[in-house]
């Protein structure tokens, strides 16, 4: 998703420049293409193969991968109920990525807002917010998520809330640090001397400048959230059947390792490829954004010609 949000913030000329940089880094290009394909699956997958992903097939039970005799959907094999794994991967992509994206978005909005308040105000609630971030940060997020999900019951909404809460401290701390620096700037003093209220200063003058940093962090955090969601689903506390994510698919296949390894293998590989692509792209984006590092991609272009 980084590949789509990043260029759109630049002007058209820069967009072409970015495309050139991207084409010079083969690894980043492959990652971007993979994520674009994934996005296509998320948007169209359930429409195209949704029916097949739920279809039980007695004859295809535990069908081994790499054979297309039953149709191309069975190329990665079938699970214990004879459902084609490729179709289930495509359908599972939607829930996996939607949950992660929703959690990151909630985390960014709520965490960012709290961070803005904590940075700007020196009242008691500013300290409460900071201690809150400390509490969440100082305890293993998976343990906390387990307790909360076991209590509230595993559902999509609860999963999103829990994931959002565990990632919030990063946004709180970053937003606060940004505000601490921004609020000393001249334009803030100018706005204040012209009689702008604190809310107006925060929303109109400070928030827009803090936002790019938060968006960058959100993009990097996206991969982490996918991994956490998968682990929770694997432990059985993710969304419940008939809905499923990749993590839940791995959990389903765990019992059949000795007889049908492909049931657990492919969905895990899908998670790995997705998070790896996201990380490769964000590492590439850091290189592009850093003037001291950008020459690597520029000199690459010269030697290529």
């Amino acid at each position: 998703m980084t590949d789509l949000t990043l260029p759109s913030r630049k002007s058209p000329g820069n967009l072409r420049q970015l495309a050139i940089y991207l084409s010079r880094d083969k690894l980043a290009l492959v990652a971007a293409l993979f994520l674009a394909l994934l996005l296509l699956c998320v948007l169209l997958g359930p429409l195209l193969v949704g029916e097949q992903a739920a279809k039980l097939g007695l004859r295809q039970r535990n069908l081994p991968p790499f054979s297309v005799q039953q149709g191309w959907l069975y190329v990665l094999g079938a699970d214990t109920l004879g459902r084609p794994i490729l179709a289930r991967l495509i359908v599972g992509a939607q829930k996996t990525l939607t949950i992660a994206a929703a959690a990151v978005l909630c985390s960014m909005i709520v965490g960012g807002t709290l961070g803005l308040i904590a940075g700007y105000s020196e009242r008691w609630y500013s300290h409460v917010i900071q201690r809150l971030a400390d509490v969440i940060m100082s305890f293993p997020s998976l343990l906390l998520a387990l307790i909360v999900l076991y209590t509230l019951g595993p559902s999509m909404l609860n999963l999103i809330i829990v994931l959002a809460i565990t990632r919030m401290p990063i946004f709180i701390r970053t937003a606060r640090a940004e505000v601490l620096e921004l609020r000393e700037r001249m334009f803030v003093s100018a706005a204040r001397s012209m009689g702008a209220s604190s809310t107006r200063i925060l929303l109109r003058h400070i928030a827009p400048l803090a936002l790019p940093t938060l968006v960058t962090i959100a993009a990097i955090d996206f991969a982490t959230v996918i991994l956490t969601e998968s682990a929770l689903s694997f432990l059985g506390l993710g969304i419940q059947p008939p809905d499923f994510t990749w993590g839940a698919m791995v959990a389903n296949g765990r019992g059949y390792l000795a007889t049908a390894w492909w049931i657990a293998f492919w969905p895990g590989l899908a998670i790995l490829l997705t998070t790896l692509s996201l990380n490769i792209l964000s590492s590439w984006a850091r290189t592009v954004a850093d003037p001291q590092q950008r020459w690597r991609l520029q000199s690459l272009r010269k030697t290529a010609r």
Partner: peptide, 9 residues
């Protein structure tokens, strides 16, 4: 980037 539960399996 590797899901730990998967690499364990």
């Amino acid at each position: 980037s590797t899901p730990d539960f998967w690499i364990a399996i």
